[in-house]
Amino acid sequence: MAVPAHITTLNLNGKFQMNKSLSDSPDDMLSAQGVGWIKRKAMGAASITVTITHSKNNAGVDTLSLVQVVSGGDPAEPEEKTLDWEEKTKEIKLFGGPCVTRSKRVSLDEVQESYLKEGWSADTLEHGCILVHLAYEGKHGWKTEQTWGIGEINGERRHIRRIALTGTKGEKLYNRIVYDYRE
Results as ranks from 00 to 15, higher is better:
32 A>W: 08
116 L>A: 06
81 K>Q: 09
35 V>E: 04
131 L>Y: 08
124 T>Q: 03
29 M>F: 08
74 D>G: 12
72 G>I: 12
80 E>F: 03
116 L>H: 05
64 L>P: 00
117 K>P: 03
87 E>N: 14
28 D>L: 15
69 V>R: 05
85 W>M: 10
50 V>G: 00
28 D>N: 15
98 P>R: 08
33 Q>Y: 03
52 I>F: 06
54 H>A: 12
105 R>L: 14
88 K>Q: 12
35 V>D: 04
124 T>K: 04
66 L>A: 11
127 H>K: 11
108 L>W: 04
106 V>G: 05
127 H>M: 01
54 H>T: 08
51 T>K: 09
125 L>D: 02
90 K>I: 10
90 K>Q: 03
117 K>N: 04
27 D>F: 12
90 K>S: 00
120 W>A: 01
134 L>Y: 03
96 G>P: 05
48 I>K: 01
28 D>T: 15
85 W>E: 11
90 K>A: 02
82 T>D: 02
27 D>M: 11
56 K>P: 03
79 E>M: 11
43 M>G: 13
36 G>I: 02
39 K>W: 01
57 N>R: 05
44 G>R: 11
77 E>S: 02
103 S>M: 04
103 S>G: 04
56 K>H: 15
134 L>K: 00
126 E>P: 02
105 R>T: 13
125 L>F: 01
115 Y>S: 01
111 V>I: 15
28 D>G: 14
